[in-house]
């Protein structure tokens, strides 16, 4: 049975077919979610929510894009919602260590030295991107997708993807300026 047939059966309420789809895609969804959430527990919660959403909406899938693109888009949206909620609850519970992410712009850049945690700066800078910029940046550089693939998955033009990518790069570069020489030398 090919995938189209399996999807059609799942659309008709065949749970065995739906479970087959879960089996095919759960690992890929988990990895994608982990790249955004940066930890396994959150990624597992997201994966669970993704498949619940797939179950609720599978009848609306019209075979206009690949099934993976469709699931991928749901995964990105769910993962970002999850990180948004997490941020809100961290705020509520004061769990976030505010010193963890260092804002370069608020520091005297001349003071930057080896002891500054570069990874923390970079992760902090990534978190400061707008959601759209972060999405395309992650898709392009962490998930190694091509501009065309990103454009198909997000259902926006290639020009728009490039625009977000350029803006993301611009912002990140500003934050990474103090490390420029160090990075180019390595």
């Amino acid at each position: 049975m090919n995938e189209t047939e399996i999807i059609r059966r799942a659309q008709d309420g065949d749970m065995a077919a739906f479970e087959q789809l879960v089996q095919t895609y759960e690992k890929r969804v988990l990895i994608t979610a982990a790249q955004i959430c940066r930890n396994q527990q959150d990624a597992e919660d997201v994966t669970q929510d993704v498949f619940l959403s797939v179950y609720r909406n599978i009848r609306t899938f019209r075979f206009e894009a690949s099934f993976y693109s469709w699931i991928y888009r749901i995964t990105m949206n769910t993962a970002f919602n999850h990180t948004r909620q997490r941020k809100y609850h961290e705020f509520l519970t004061n769990d976030e260590d505010e010193d963890r992410y260092i804002d370069v712009s608020e520091e005297d850049s001349t003071d930057f030295s080896e002891q500054t945690d570069f990874q923390a700066v970079f992760e902090g800078a990534l978190k400061k991107l707008s959601e759209k910029q972060r999405t395309v940046f992650i898709m392009r550089y962490l998930q190694h997708l091509k501009i065309k693939e990103i454009s198909t998955i997000l259902a926006v033009g290639e020009g728009t993807v490039k625009k977000y990518l350029f803006r993301a790069q611009e912002k990140l570069q500003n934050q990474l300026k103090p490390f420029k020489n160090q990075l180019l030398e390595d």
Binding site: V22, Q23, E26, K27, L30, I31, A34, Q35, R38, Q40, A43, E44, T47, Q48, F51, L52, F118, Q119, F122, E123, Y141, L142, Q169, L172, Q173, L176, F179, K180, L183, L184, D186
Partner: peptide, 26 residues
């Protein structure tokens, strides 16, 4: 610069042993 910065990020790895439990939860 960005490419090197990205490579410096810790690799996000997933524990595949959790997948059967995750599957059951889904």
């Amino acid at each position: 610069i960005l490419s090197k910065a990205i490579k410096s990020l810790p690799e996000v790895s997933i524990d595949e042993d959790h997948i059967p439990t995750l599957h059951a939860n889904i």
